[in-house]
Write a protein that binds this DNA or RNA. Structure first.
Length: 396
RNA sequence: GGGCGGAUUGCAGAGUGGCCAAAUGCAUCAGACUGUAAAUCUGACGUCUCCGACUUCGGUGGUUCGAAUCCACCUCCUCCCA
């Protein structure tokens, strides 16, 4: 079998590993069971999760068996990594609901059939029933507080306050890995690079307790060339759930990727062959727009399916080049004026904002700049906000 | 448990009786320039029936003609001592 590590390296996934040589040999010689953890903190997956799933897919395609661990138990603690504040505690019901949502979305990318079909586990199943005394004697004894305090992931929290509850997170995650190692022979944990300390904790725990090799590998975090986390917009995260982020918005997000990030995104988030990607990003002038279209299309296709990807692409081309169908929006309001429509359609957050936009010349109706804040809108009219937002209004 | 310092508009962070809808930076939005990019410049950035009015500065009361600013109590948090 071809070695998936080569693929992951070539596409720029790999950030840190332990025992890299051994791991490489292992991945090249047999089917390895590995796991990636997901925190069910929201009712939809977002782009950060997506990167993990793509990596998981590469692994699965290479013959390895994925375990998707949903952190239903650890979510009750809250991962303090990189957070400045303590996370709100969620109820068991909320978490269970999120778990269901995740399962649905994941089944689009990952195969659950066949010899190396993925399995989903929820760490609530074994964490909730833990006996405290037994746990700290069996597991806690192997953790050095000195080492933990030195871990980068607690750095910001040590300045602002870290509760003992959250301090335990690392032990929980380490225990997860041990548990999966024993139950499923899982020997490798993958995750984002911010999880390095937590992942390492588990791999070390297995090596100490079971005296057997366990591996850890982290992936590059998806950040923009400016170092910011990708997948954030003014509205919040870019979600995979189409009711939270429409396929058109999703498409547009990627269509507007910065030049410097296109290559990275194509390699990390699509399955296009690397030589093809290299060809796409060969030019650093306006020709890179072709690469952005491919990126947006490919991603939308993976997440929302081919039909919706084509539709989104047509809508985008219509909005920026003319022709084709624009996205439509049903709006309910009487005696519709431009201000009311802007707010009702969710384009502006308040009347004041709509008024301001018009006064600043940022709104057009059917390609004509709006100067009167009371300009009437008819069904079928197209409202434009700035250069990027174009919506056909259906009054209902 | 004791002591100190805090809680301000998305975030960070000024403001310590009227000149405060509240400095500044970041983020965001629009305009110009462009390639649906970046950088840069300009403007906006609580709500409304918008040249005026109304509601905000952890919560509840109080002092005052007037409070984000003073007082009391409460809630939460950092730090120091245990």
């Amino acid at each position: 079998m071809s070695n998936v590590m080569d693929t992951l390296r070539e596409r720029g996934f790999v950030k840190q590993t332990v025992y890299e040589e051994d791991l490489y040999k292992l991945l090249g010689s047999e089917s390895v069971t590995f796991y990636i953890g997901f925190d069910p903190t929201a009712d939809s997956l977002h782009i950060g999760h997506f990167l993990q799933l793509i990596a998981m897919k590469h692994m699965q395609d290479a013959g390895h068996r994925p375990i998707i661990l949903i952190g239903g138990g650890t979510a009750m603690i809250g991962d303090p990594t990189g957070k400045t504040d303590m996370r709100k505690m969620m109820t068991r019901e909320t978490i269970d609901y999120h778990v269901e949502c995740f399962k649905k979305q994941m089944s689009k990318f990952i195969s659950f059939e066949g010899d190396n079909g993925a399995i989903i586990v929820n760490n609530a199943d074994w964490l909730t029933g833990l006996n405290y005394l037994q746990f700290i004697r069996d597991i806690g004894v192997h953790f050095s507080v000195n080492e933990m305090l030195r871990a980068k992931c607690f750095e910001t929290r040590l300045e602002r306050g870290l509760s003992f509850l959250e301090f335990n997170y690392m032990l929980m995650q380490g225990y997860d890995f041990l548990k999966l190692f024993k139950d499923y022979g899982c020997a490798l944990e993958l995750g984002g690079d911010d999880q390095w300390s937590n992942i390492l904790a588990g791999a070390n725990l297995i090596r100490v307790k079971e005296k057997k090799p366990a591996y850890a590998m982290t992936f590059t975090l998806l950040t923009t060339s400016e170092g910011k986390k990708m997948g954030k917009t003014e509205k919040g995260a870019v979600w995979l759930d189409e009711t939270k982020t429409s396929p058109y918005e999703f498409y547009q997000y990627w269509r507007n990727t910065a030049d410097a990030d296109v290559e990275k995104c194509l390699k990390l988030l699509t399955f296009l062959p690397v030589p093809q990607i290299d060809a796409l990003v060969a030019h650093r002038d306006e020709r890179i727009n072709a690469a952005k279209e491919v990126l947006a299309y490919e991603l939308t296709k993976i997440v929302h399916g081919e039909d919706k990807a084509i539709l989104a692409q047509n809508q985008a081309r219509a909005a920026f080049g003319g022709g084709g169908e624009l996205p439509e929006k049903d709006v309910h309001c009487e005696n519709a004026t431009i201000i009311q429509v802007l707010v009702a359609a969710g384009i502006c957050a308040s009347n004041g904002e709509a008024r301001r936009l018009i006064q600043q010349g940022g709104v057009s109706l059917n390609d004509k700049k709006v100067t009167d804040i009371n300009e009437p809108v008819n069904s079928g009219d197209t409202v434009h906000k700035g250069k990027k937002i174009h919506v056909k209004i259906n009054l209902v």
